[in-house]
Each structure stands twice: as C-alpha cells, then as structure tokens.
C-alpha cells in the first residue's frame, strides 16, 4: 500500500475544471515528480492534497486513511507538509519566527530547538539571517526558508511546488541537492512538482506527466527521461 494514494480526483475553480480525474500514488521513501506545462494542474493537485482546494469527486488516502475534504490544518497535523508555489514566506515575521511557525503543532520545545539546529545545518545561510524579516530575503533564501519551515514538523510527506522557480541556475543545483539529501537523510517522502522536468526526473524515482488536468504518462523517471515525446515537449528538444 502506498503512503499517498490519489484516485480519480476532480477539482474545479468555479466553472473551470482544473483536475479531470487524477490518479497517482507515492510510496513511502520515494521521490515522485509531477511534470507538465504551465496551467496543467500541477499546483492544483498539491493544493487538493493539502486541503486548500476542495475536490468535487475522487479520494485522497494518506497512510490508509481517507483525508478527502479535511481542513488544511488537520491534514498538516497528520504529517503532510506543503511548500506552496511562490514560497509564501510570512514577509513580516523574522526568519526565526517563520521557522517556528512551521512547528506550530509540535509541543516539545526541546524538540523544536533541536530541529531548528538541524535546519541551520542544512541551510547555513538561514542561521546568518535569523533576526531578519522574511520579506527581505533573496529568492533563493526564501526557498530555503520555505523548505526549512515545512520540515520543522518532521513531516512524513513533503509536497514541493516548483522549488526552482525564479532561481539562478547555480542555486537550482543546490536546491535539488537538498531535496535528495532530505529524502535520503530524513527519509522524507517527496512529491515534487516542477516545470524544470529534466532536473526533477534526475532526482525522482518515478514521474507523472500532466496535461490539461489529466495524467498522460506515468513511468519510472529513467524511462520518462528517455521517452521521445517527453524529450520533445518537456525537455525542449526537437
């Protein structure tokens, strides 16, 4: 049984039919990626899993439990952490406060302190900036902060929405390294949404290709990387 099982999910924004029957699974310890063009429904898929968008039909099961239609804060409390598109740092909270907010449901202060030190080890840049307001960080630092914040509750699954968006190429490499390390060192399961399909497929074990709200391909990352259609459409080759 997979850790996260999504079946036949339909999500609407008013009249707009954004997800037209998404079915996918993420196994424990895996990195699975969801690639596709702008507007394909990648973010909506993550938003539906974390409860900020409501599906009209379909179901989401997490660790065997039906979480469809649950409130975002209850889903977060179960161990699903969502790093939203555009990072969504709290701009007027300090870096430290942003990180602490990520541990909202952790009662043990010692645990929070220990976890925070782990985050500073993973992202030394954040340690230098603890008392700075979140809104004053650079894009790359904000991405680090968003990931650190999401990891503070020691989640079972991390939903990452376009972590490389808007970052300089050097930083993109760094972020993908971190994603691999989180998966290997913390044993965190990751569902990764990317437009940068090549990088995503390099770190993932499996992938899904999304088009207009439907999954059009599902395979191992290796196979997708060598699929001619994928190479042509998503990796920009002719």
């Amino acid at each position: 049984m997979a850790l996260l099982e999504i079946s036949d999910l339909h999500t609407y924004y008013g009249q707009i039919h954004a997800l037209k029957g998404i079915t996918l699974t993420v196994g424990e310890g895996e990195i699975v990626t969801l690639v596709g063009a702008n507007g394909a429904g990648k973010s909506t898929t993550l938003r539906t899993v974390s409860g900020i968008a409501r599906p009209r039909t379909g179901s989401i099961r997490f660790a065997g439990r039906d979480i469809t239609g649950m409130k975002p804060h209850d889903i977060a409390a179960l161990g699903i952490s969502h790093v939203p598109e555009g990072r969504r740092i709290f701009p007027l909270l300090t870096v430290q406060e942003n990180i602490e907010i990520g541990a909202w449901n952790v009662a043990d202060r010692k645990q929070i302190g220990k976890r925070m030190q782990e985050m500073f080890a993973l992202f030394p840049r954040l340690r230098e900036r603890v008392q700075q307001k979140g809104g004053t960080l650079s894009g790359g630092e904000q991405q680090m902060l968003a990931i650190a914040r999401a990891l503070m509750c020691d989640p079972k699954v991390l939903l990452l929405d376009e972590p490389s968006m808007g970052l300089a190429p050097v930083l993109v490499e760094g972020i993908f390294d971190i994603i691999t390390r989180i998966n290997q060192e913390q044993k965190t399961t990751i569902l990764l949404v990317e437009q940068n399909a090549l990088m995503a497929l390099e770190v993932a074990s499996r992938g899904y290709v999304l088009q207009s709200g439907k999954i059009v391909l599902a395979d191992t990352a290796h196979a997708l990387m060598h699929n001619e259609e994928v190479r042509r459409v998503y990796l920009g080759e002719n």
Partner: peptide, 15 residues
C-alpha cells in the same frame, strides 16, 4: 500575525 499576513499559508502550517 501569520494569519493576518497569509491566511492560506498559515493553514498549511497546521494553524
């Protein structure tokens, strides 16, 4: 303060 800055994201934090 978190809710007043970004209600949706505050929910994602478990608030």
């Amino acid at each position: 303060r978190a809710v007043s800055q970004d209600m949706t994201t505050a929910g994602l934090m478990g608030i």
